[in-house]
Amino acid sequence: MNNQPGDKLLEIQDVSTAFNIDGKYYDAVSDVSLDLYKNETLAIVGESGCGKSTLATSIMGLHDPNETKVSGKINFEGTDLLSLTDDEMNKYRGQKIGMIFQDPLSALNPLKRVEDQIQEVMVYHTKMDEKQRHARVMELLNQVGIEKPERIAHEFPHELSGGMRQRIIIAIAIACKPDLLIADEPTTALDVTIQAQILDVLKDIQNENHEAIILITHDLGVVAETADRVAVMYAGQIVELGSALKVFHNPKHPYTRSLLRSMPQRNSENDDLYVINGTVPSLQKMPTHGDRFAPRIPWVPASAHEENPVMHELEPGHFVRCTCYKVFDFPAEKEGAKA
């Protein structure tokens, strides 16, 4: 909202990602379609197993082709990333698309100095010499808010705090000024105060470089603080998509509403929290027909669901899957505590 959305950067069309489990392929992401515009932050939110990280790694092409099948189209600046070979894809990874990972300690090579790890990405994508790369490293460390870049650059990852490490990861991801930054749970392993700083750093970088950010997180608070648009995922599908304002202030899909309702709220400390019926189905048990969320709202009559739920545009830019949102309401309060 703070940013003027630019041109379309990324077009995800009917992307499905299936994993090989004991010889059979199961969809972790099924038929996801999504557009991303320059200079915007799109949050993909959902609980573990909903496919949000799988979608991100599919865009990056990080899946092992022997174990994973990715189908559909991922158009990035006019090129279908899924049609590229691994070598061709390497020209995009790190240069046009940067990625930030959840655990900043394990994401850094423990045996290499910070400077070498940041320089590495420039070695493969630029013609800079050692001296220029060093200068760029200093510039980057400044940009991610590290005060003594010369000293930090010389350290090993284990000598830094969690927040510092995540800044290094960000520096690596933005080293070549990518057009797209994918941040997969970038603050989950961090304390709240550090989380706030890291989110600020990401915002500041966006204001400078105008890249698009895909922010993957399970934390609704983080989404509400940073995202321009939100995609809510459940069981491999997007169930609701819209501006942050719409999704948080006028959520439509039963899953979105349930999630928001199960958060501990201010001034309701004496009430039980809302609990969603049942559990997320495992990959092998994913229903192939009908509304995947239907088993978790059993009081909604079957007739309210679509046979093959599709996205409906309620208002410009606000989409909801299935028609069941029209009749959905929460059961009476006393039901809330039941497992």
Partner: peptide
């Protein structure tokens, strides 16, 4: 994970 990072760098 650090190999994943290196992959994401385009190495």
């Amino acid at each position: 994970d650090y190999v994943k990072t290196a992959r994401a760098k385009g190495v």
